[in-house]
């Protein structure tokens, strides 16, 4: 797909995020908007997946370890054709396939139930290890948050990924710098995250602008480093694309009301 077409998809997914959270009256728009470009790149360009054959055992896998960015995942899956659009207005409602956090039993295209932070990367490492054990070619992608990286489990999983030489695993850090209680540095500093990832045995790529489709694609397309798991630092902007949300910690877990949603959608028009 052309860059422009992918950027257009990302714009539509951002609109979905605003509509879903606004209609639900809750949800996590900030970290969804920062993650959108990577998710669109993965599902429309990078991963070997097919909505018409969504359980194909040879497909690539994606685990949204920062599960609260579910609106971005649902928007991407819907635009990609995993489920009909009418589900989008049921987000966070009783009996919906679109639970507050992704549910593998309920939503087509979801590879793991996440939301309890730190667990997704660990499950992704297990998938990659199983693929290697079975001699299969699946590549496993997972997206973690920067706040999430305060969980010890992220580092347990990282140690295992290097130990088992999981070069079929790509960990993507959505590095928007903010979490619920404030900036990472105010809450619990990550320190030199790149040095930490390197020290844990990752092959590390840093993307200056993780909301720039060209840069995102270049990083995701970089050939694997044999014997090493990949770690991509996507430097992103929380709330990207909606002026009043950008870099505002208050929009981590708050939905826009109708008026603000209308403003956001106007900004996100082509």
């Amino acid at each position: 797909m052309e860059i422009q077409a992918l950027e257009e998809k990302a714009r539509l997914v951002r609109q979905d995020i605003i509509r879903m959270t606004s209609m639900a009256g809750s949800g996590h728009p900030g970290g969804s908007l920062s993650a959108t470009d990577t998710l669109v790149a993965l599902y429309f360009e990078i991963m070997n997946v097919d909505p018409a054959d969504e359980k194909n055992p040879d497909r690539d896998r994606f685990v949204l370890s920062k599960g609260h960015a579910a609106p971005a995942l649902y928007g991407t899956l819907c635009e990609r054709g995993y489920f009909p659009r009418e589900h989008m207005e049921t987000f966070r409602q009783l009996h919906s396939i679109l639970q507050g956090h992704p549910d593998v039993k309920k939503c087509p295209g979801v590879d793991a139930s996440t939301g309890s932070l730190g667990q997704g990367i660990s499950m992704a490492a297990g998938m990659a290890l199983a693929a290697k054990h079975l001699g299969k070619k699946n590549h496993v992608y997972t997206m973690i948050g920067d706040g999430e990286s305060q969980e010890g489990l992220v580092w347990e999983a990282s140690m295992a990924a290097a130990h088992y030489k999981l070069d079929n695993l790509t960990v993507i850090l959505d590095h928007n710098g903010l979490q619920i209680d404030g900036s990472n540095d105010e809450v619990m500093s990550l320190g030199d995250i790149k040095a930490k990832a390197l020290a844990f045995g990752y092959d590390v790529i840093e993307v200056a602008d993780g909301n720039d489709m060209r840069q995102v694609l270049d990083a995701l397309r970089a050939p694997a480093c044999p014997g090493k798991p990949r770690y991509i630092i996507m430097n992103t902007i929380k709330g990207k694309g909606v002026s009043y949300m950008e870099n505002q910690v208050g929009w981590h877990g708050k939905a826009p009301d109708a008026e603000l949603a209308a403003r956001a959608l106007k900004e996100l028009e082509g």
């Binding site: 593998v104 499950m123 490492a125 297990g126 990659a128 290890l129 199983a130 299969k136 010890g152 347990e156």
Partner: peptide, 18 residues
């Protein structure tokens, strides 16, 4: 290794691969 939480979630991931 001495990382029980990771063991359980890795097993979860492995189970999804059959």
């Amino acid at each position: 290794g001495i990382a029980e939480a990771n063991m359980v979630d890795m097993a979860a991931g492995m189970s999804t691969m059959g």
